[in-house]
């Protein structure tokens, strides 16, 4: 069973790709609020390398949709400055892997200004960025790195896995008074030039709606074990759960949707029921999300667990180029099935 929370919006039969759903969210907010604008590399005529801004230039013109030079420090800082003065920028970092050239603007400025000012200054912006691998783009273009951003106090982090959440989380992110890092996996966008999961096309209501930041979603109910995951891995986990069901293992799958704030209650509630936790994370294993979730359970009540917590994440190697190597480290459906069986054994 798939439970998608549609309570905040009317049920829709219109189907969009995740990319189109994101753009629709941005577009409706730009319509509503003249302080919203978009900047980044190739977000204008090109429409975003991963189609995150398609048609916005044509619709809103070059004063609200701006191609920048390849100067991430400058335009990341520009977004922060504009936000401080009351605008609501949406700034795209083409691949999250490029954060290295502009991280100071992100974690020392964007993230900390509200706190350092004693709450007197707000930085309402959206930093949207493409994440993830699976198509042999090598070690500098395939990382997820959400754990890195979630680690920094002051940044909200959202990671949609499907079109419905993509639109709703985008609208919530734009309306939020904090910097929100919006991380979209290339593999969930529904791009015509990349292998795609069938769920990258899905129902999206036409009216604007919010998906609350900080709320996970139980995308499949089950009693034997809880698989907590996010982004593209949600789809692999759902496929794995179908397979495991045939083998008599009934998995509950949680799509976190947000990392900051983290919906600890949703995880604990599910683990209290199933007694088993498998975390599936396309980010590096150590010092990240999977360890954080294990800590959530351990700090609350380790007796909830009938088996040790298990993690399937990138085993602390850079993402390799060659397909045989890359698929040895990515959390594929097959690897989730094996990991789940080990948890039950």
């Amino acid at each position: 069973m798939v439970l998608i929370d549609t309570s905040s919006a009317s049920v829709s039969t219109r189907r969009l790709t995740t990319a189109k759903a994101m753009v629709e969210g941005i577009s409706q907010e730009m319509e509503r609020d003249p302080s919203v604008f978009v900047l980044g590399e190739d977000v204008g005529a090109y429409g975003g390398i991963f189609s995150s801004t398609t048609g916005l230039l044509e619709r809103f013109g070059p004063h609200r949709v701006m191609d920048t030079p390849i100067s991430e420090t400058a335009f990341m800082g520009l977004a922060t400055g504009a936000a401080v003065e009351g605008m609501r920028p949406i700034v795209e970092l083409m691949f999250v892997d490029f954060f290295g050239v502009c991280m100071d603007q992100i974690y020392n400025h964007m993230a900390k200004i509200h706190y350092e000012s004693g709450g007197n200054v707000k930085v309402p912006l959206v930093l949207m960025t493409a994440v993830g691998g699976g198509y042999s783009d090598g070690a500098q273009h395939s990382q997820c790195l959400w754990g890195t951003f979630a680690h920094m106090p002051g940044l909200k982090v959202v990671v949609p896995s499907n079109p419905f959440d993509a639109k709703g989380l985008m609208i919530s992110a734009i309306r939020d008074d904090n910097p929100v890092v919006y991380m979209f996996h290339k593999g969930v966008m529904g791009l015509p030039w990349m292998a795609k999961n069938p769920r990258s096309l899905g129902p999206v209501p036409e009216k604007p709606y919010e998906v609350p930041i900080g709320k996970a979603s139980v995308v499949r109910t089950g009693k034997d074990m809880t698989i907590v995951t996010l982004s593209l891995s949600v789809h692999h986990a759902l496929d794995a759960a179908d397979d495991l069901a045939q083998q008599g293992i009934d998995c509950e799958v949680i799509d976190l949707r947000s990392l900051v704030p983290l919906d600890r209650e949703a995880v604990l509630e599910s683990v209290s029921k199933t007694g088993r936790l498998l975390v599936v994370d396309e980010d590096y294993q150590s010092f990240g999300l999977s360890g954080e979730l294990a800590a959530v359970v351990a700090e609350t009540d380790p007796r909830l667990l009938k088996a040790p917590v298990s993690r399937l994440a990138i085993p602390d190697v850079p993402i390799p180029y060659s397909r045989t190597l890359e698929y040895a480290v990515l959390p594929t459906m097959e690897r989730i099935v094996s990991a789940a069986k080990r948890v039950m054994a």
């Binding site: 783009d137 090598g138 070690a139 500098q140 850079p318 180029y321």
Partner: peptide, 10 residues
């Protein structure tokens, strides 16, 4: 060159 770890940009 990089035993398949790098790829054309590396």
């Amino acid at each position: 060159l990089g035993k398949g770890r790098g790829g054309h940009m590396h």
